[in-house]
């Protein structure tokens, strides 16, 4: 096995009484696309910013490529590229000027920089926008440029904080294709997102909830952590059914998926058997039922809502 590229050891960050990140420990191998999942405010951004040396940990430590991210933060900066949550390039500078500036700031030698810029413009599909002010690019192109700027010093590791939030599906796809290319080149990618379909695209996923790491595994393993298959029902009318099923004591939660209701319950077989024997809602028509495989959204819902009874806890 290779040396892990990122190691978090009991990493914690508190702002006064607010414990944003609490004793998170994990290791990430080179070449991984690590998806860092969690609700807003779960501590994803704080974790990324600690790993980038932008804020100091209040407990524990972390290393990137074996270098302490806070004590030796000036050394660690050549090892990674960072794309912040907000668009943070210079809107009054052109695409090329932004790339050139970050290249200079990252001490890329002038001769090398020309080649890099040409390559990155191609990679981000921005050749025709070379002389356009970054501020007048569309959201997707801005993000591609931000990615380009983060790559200008050819780092082995990329931190991306919600790179696709607010983007249309076409640009999301474009960004992910780019990430696959980079992964294929051997780069490690650490990406936060709250799009569950994006979580499926990662080779490994970590769930952060209220500053604590709940699980870390491959999406396949996580989905396998459901103890049972999920019951999906077709009921008419659907909205009253959702509300009333949700209030049943033996049901943990209900989510609406493609016209069906997905039931999270500790013992769905028994529930279904009871319902077959006697359907408790005479005014709701039970039209059909089926068993489905859980997807990442189910995993996320179960972890973030604390439906522990449906999960086999795994932190591989």
């Amino acid at each position: 096995m290779n040396e892990p590229v990122i190691v978090l050891n009991q990493l914690s960050k508190s702002f006064g009484d607010v414990h944003a990140v609490q004793s998170v420990s994990l290791t990430i191998e080179p070449g991984t696309i690590f998806g860092f999942l969690g609700a807003n405010g779960a501590g994803k951004t704080t974790t990324i910013r600690m790993l980038c040396g932008l804020t100091h940990p209040t407990g524990g430590n972390a290393t990137v490529a074996g270098i302490d991210v806070w004590k030796d933060r000036h050394l660690v900066r050549t090892k990674f590229g960072y794309v912040a949550q907000r668009f943070s390039l210079y809107p009054d500078l052109t695409v090329e000027e932004n790339l050139r500036f970050f290249g200079g700031a990252c001490r890329v030698l002038a001769a090398e920089l020309e080649k890099r810029i040409a390559r990155l413009l191609g990679l981000a599909d921005l050749e025709t926008k070379r002389d356009v002010a970054a501020g007048s690019l569309s959201g997707g192109m801005r993000q591609l440029l931000a990615l380009g700027c983060a790559l200008v010093h050819d780092p082995p590791l990329l931190f991306l904080d919600e790179p696709t939030s607010g983007l249309d599906p076409v640009h999301r796809q474009q960004i992910w294709n780019l990430l696959y290319d980079l992964s294929n080149e051997g780069k490690t990618i650490f990406v936060t997102t709250h799009y569950m379909d994006e979580a499926e695209r990662c080779t490994e996923v970590g769930f952060l909830e209220a500053g604590r790491l709940l699980a870390k595994a491959s999406p396949r393993t996580l989905k396998a952590s459901f103890r049972a298959r999920l019951l999906e029902l077709d009921i008419e009318p659907i909205m009253p059914a959702l509300v009333r099923l949700r209030n049943l004591p033996e049901v943990l939660g209900v989510s609406l998926r493609s016209g069906g209701l997905r039931i999270y319950a500790p013992d769905p077989e028994k529930l279904l058997a009871n319902w077959r024997a006697q359907w408790p809602f005479p005014d709701l028509n039970l039209l059909g039922e089926r068993w489905v495989e859980p997807d990442m959204e189910d995993v996320f819902t179960a972890y973030s809502q604390g439906y522990d009874d449906v999960l086999k806890r795994s932190t591989s």
Binding site: C52, G53, L54, R77, A84, F87, S88, C106, R107, H153
Partner: peptide, 11 residues
């Protein structure tokens, strides 16, 4: 603009 952090993670 948030560019300050971008600036600080450069060398």
């Amino acid at each position: 603009a948030g560019t300050l952090y971008q600036l600080l993670v450069t060398s």
